[in-house]
């Protein structure tokens, strides 16, 4: 009789514990699969698509503009030719653009939309982050505001970009004019590093079909910190 009661108690314990055992086994297998599966590429895309760590709430959904205080004067005593890039979020003012020859000094926001274009120059999210190699950093602004003097920039002029992670000096190599349908200056190159600045070509009436600007190549890169993965050369 006592043996039977003991057996029944054991059977009940198994019935209760089995779901926990299965939960542990399944959880363990899932964690193992996740750690072994080659998800780094997917992770990279997810990190880009859902990069906004600050988040917006339902009450403030939409654009989250971040203003930064980017110094154009103070450079750290030690800088590097290659180094750590700090990726901006959409709507973040992450650089200052300076072209002394045309008296252009403007904030650069990451992402392009009407609200950001009202505040400064905008960088296409499909283009390379400043300092990335290979890549083409594409920045545009309205011809009626921040890039009204872009037409004055000539081949050989110096363009400076200041960010929180470094300062970058470019030389204008080409003055460009292209149709708005023509993407050749806006695409990502397989090799080489470029900076493309453009705006609309003004006309008396109607939507401008033509774009004008300059194409630049880097002449000096000063990163403030070495890359964690690759290291940099001083």
């Amino acid at each position: 009789m006592a043996e039977q009661t003991e057996k029944k108690r054991g059977s009940k314990a198994i019935l209760i514990l089995t779901p926990f055992l299965l939960l542990l086994l399944t959880g363990g297998i899932l964690i193992l699969c996740y750690s072994l599966a080659p998800t780094h590429r997917l992770q990279k895309y997810l990190n880009i698509a859902f990069m906004d760590n600050l988040k917006t709430t339902a009450q403030t959904d939409g654009l989250h503009i971040i203003e930064n205080d980017i110094s154009t004067n103070d450079t750290p005593s030690e800088t590097f030719d290659a180094g750590e890039i700090i990726y901006p979020t959409f709507g973040e003012q992450y650089a200052m653009l300076q072209i002394e020859s045309a008296d252009i000094y403007v904030s650069v926001y990451y992402g392009v939309n009407a609200e950001l274009l009202e505040r400064g120059a905008c960088q296409s999210t499909q283009s390379a982050i400043i300092g990335e190699n290979p890549g083409n950093t594409v920045i545009d602004a309205h011809v009626t505001t921040f890039f009204s003097e872009l037409g004055k920039v000539k081949t050989g002029d110096t363009v400076k970009l200041y960010t929180k992670y470094g300062r970058f000096v470019y030389k204008v190599t080409e003055q460009i004019e292209f149709s708005k349908e023509d993407k050749r200056y806006l695409t990502v190159p397989k090799e080489g590093e470029y900076l493309t600045l453009y705006t609309c070509k003004p006309q008396v009436l109607g939507s401008p079909d033509q774009r004008v600007g300059v194409r630049c190549e880097p002449v000096e890169k000063q990163f403030y910190a070495q890359s964690k993965q690759e290291g940099g050369t001083q």
Binding site: L23, G27, M51, D52, T56, L63, T125
Partner: peptide, 27 residues
């Protein structure tokens, strides 16, 4: 168990409003 394993991450994603991290803020 299948339900629990689906429910926990889904409720977390939903309650934490995780998708609000979406980078494209064009309204």
């Amino acid at each position: 168990i299948a339900a629990i394993l689906l429910l926990i991450p889904s409720v977390w994603l939903y309650q934490a409003r995780w998708f609000d991290r979406f980078a494209v803020k064009t309204d």
